[in-house]
Design a protein around this nucleic acid. Structure first.
Lengths: 195, 195
DNA sequence: TAGATCATGTAATTTGTTACATGATTCG
DNA sequence: CGAATCATGTAACAAATTACATGATCTA
């Protein structure tokens, strides 16, 4: 029950545990040692979030004690958890999530493999591209309409513009990469002009 | 008293009110209508933060009621507030703030005008450049050391790399812009090869 | 005068942070 | 044996979100 929307951390946990079941400690190590470092690896954030997801019926923990080592609580997605994840993955990028804590769009992309078809993924990237382009246009208008403003302030604003332009070129590249036929699978993967 | 470090929102308020005194409503409008939109414009965030700053003695509110219009509480920085702001502005960029909520470095830059000398500002940008470059190198090593990983996962990682590369080119540009002598002020400003 | 906008706040709830606590197991 | 690492948690606190409440002033 209870269809409250999950936090970005909870979605991150869902996506990670979907790819590979693991313990809170596993996740903490991942957050501490990979480019997912913008998530806190502190136990005070992770364990309560795992408990919330378990109480919500989205993940299930089972005690795993390979003789000798200390017991770990390993979490796996439930059917409802997988549903919640794919439902989230299908949401197009919105202005709101682009501007307020822009991590969600790329987090969704990175978990999409295996859940979205190539068509869906391209549609998703298109929604991403559209939102970034629209926002850039708006900021461009803002910049043009700024009254008497110092070069310093222009420079500061340019930082944001550059950041979004960078996103845009990545998106366009990603679309191009995904649009080429996937070098027709089976057997010798890793070949082909895949970027 | 109480030297707890301020939140990023509180620093944003400090920087904004330093540039131009104003009310909570003014700030809310600014957050809602400019590229500072990653800050929440909700009254439940802004008014409590202003109260905290006032209780900490960093800003002072006075009732401003220009006959006719409704009274507004206009805040100005106190001496201690200015000190707190400039102290913060002088902090070099750290890995921690770059990775966890990367807004602080550029926020500091955008408030630095009038508080830091050109030399200090260049030093600050240099610390920014150094941190971004170091982090990029680390992510690059991570990317190179990833085992069997799908093209999709490479693509996702590239998003972050692009974002930091974008920051880096902005920083280098900004340094170059600031390094040229400031077209020697007085009188006809707005001229000169300033970018 | 009715509705929009100006303007300030509060209350309930949720979330995250920091710091602490605890105990098992491995390694030097 | 002692230190480091594995592993899971809790408690106190601070902060943000959403939603609500309130009233003044302006405009159609």
């Amino acid at each position: 029950m209870s269809d409250r929307t999950l936090t970005i951390l909870e979605y991150a946990l869902l996506g990670l545990l979907d790819r590979r079941p693991g313990s809170g400690y596993d996740v903490a190590r991942l957050f501490a040692s990979t480019p997912m470092a913008h998530f806190s690896s502190s136990p005070g954030a992770i364990y309560p979030a795992l408990l919330r997801l378990e109480r919500a019926g989205l993940i299930a923990g089972r005690l795993d004690s390979p003789t000798g080592t200390r017991a770990r609580r390993v979490y796996t997605l439930t059917e409802r958890g997988r549903t919640a994840l794919t439902t989230w993955l299908r949401q197009p990028v919105t202005r709101q999530e682009l501007v307020r804590d822009g991590r969600a769009p790329i987090l969704r992309f990175s978990f999409a493999e295996g859940h979205l078809s190539r068509g869906e993924l391209l549609g998703y990237l298109e929604s991403f591209r559209r939102e970034v382009a629209a926002y850039l246009e708006e900021v461009g208008r803002f910049r043009a309409g700024m009254g008497n403003v110092t070069p310093h302030q222009h420079l500061a604003l340019d930082h944001g513009i550059r950041a979004y332009e960078g996103q845009l070129t990545w998106i366009v590249d990603a679309i191009r990469t995904l649009e080429q036929p996937p070098a027709s699978s089976m057997g010798s993967e890793g070949e082909g002009p895949c970027r």
